[in-house]
């Protein structure tokens, strides 16, 4: 029963963990810890919302917990060092594949990566992020803003390299 549940959700949940991890090995550790929690907390699932959504939230929490344990300081890059915000060509950005976007997001400092993932992809509010991360709502908003700035710069750089390679 547990193995069947794992097989049904493992690949989707590894996709979640990959966005929070720096590499695949780290993502699989997060996945492993997350599934152990899922199986230990199965009785806590009260049928409110989808089961997959419940498992996904556990994976997010597991990923953040992993970072707290293994990266005592969630590095943040000062806004001044992030450089000037670059403009992004929406057409060029839409052409970026999953692996490109994953490679870009992986380069984010851990704190920004958490906040951006939770807000932009998972759909958490700043209040929820603040509670989970142990930071204020304002800090969550500012970190999200800095994360976007860094991501645009990274996309701009990636697009430039593409143009350079084409040219």
């Amino acid at each position: 029963m547990q193995e069947l549940l794992y097989k049904l959700l493992a690949s989707k949940m590894l996709g979640v963990c990959m966005r929070y991890a720096t590499d695949r090995m780290e993502a699989e550790d997060m996945l492993q810890n997350g599934f152990v929690k899922v199986f230990n907390k199965l009785d806590d699932f009260r049928g409110e919302g989808s089961f997959e959504g419940w498992v996904r939230r556990i994976m997010v929490h597991s990923s953040i917990e992993y970072y707290r344990k293994n990266h005592k300081m969630m590095q943040v890059v000062d806004i001044e060092t992030a450089g000037e915000e670059q403009s992004v060509d929406p057409v060029a950005a839409s052409n970026l594949g999953v692996q490109d976007l994953l490679a870009i997001i992986t380069q984010l400092p851990p704190g920004y990566k958490m906040v951006f993932n939770m807000y932009a992809i998972e759909g958490y509010s700043h209040k929820e992020i603040g509670e989970i991360m142990g930071i204020t709502e304002g800090a969550s908003k500012s970190q999200l803003s800095r994360a976007r700035t860094i991501l645009k710069e990274l996309i701009y750089k990636m697009e430039g390299k593409k143009y350079e390679s084409v040219g």
Binding site: L96, L101, R148
Partner: peptide, 18 residues
């Protein structure tokens, strides 16, 4: 839209674990 770019492509990403 920027957030949507990431969520649409990475939100449903699946990877086969080891």
């Amino acid at each position: 839209d920027f957030d949507q770019l990431f969520s649409s492509k990475l939100g449903d990403m699946e990877l086969e674990p080891s």
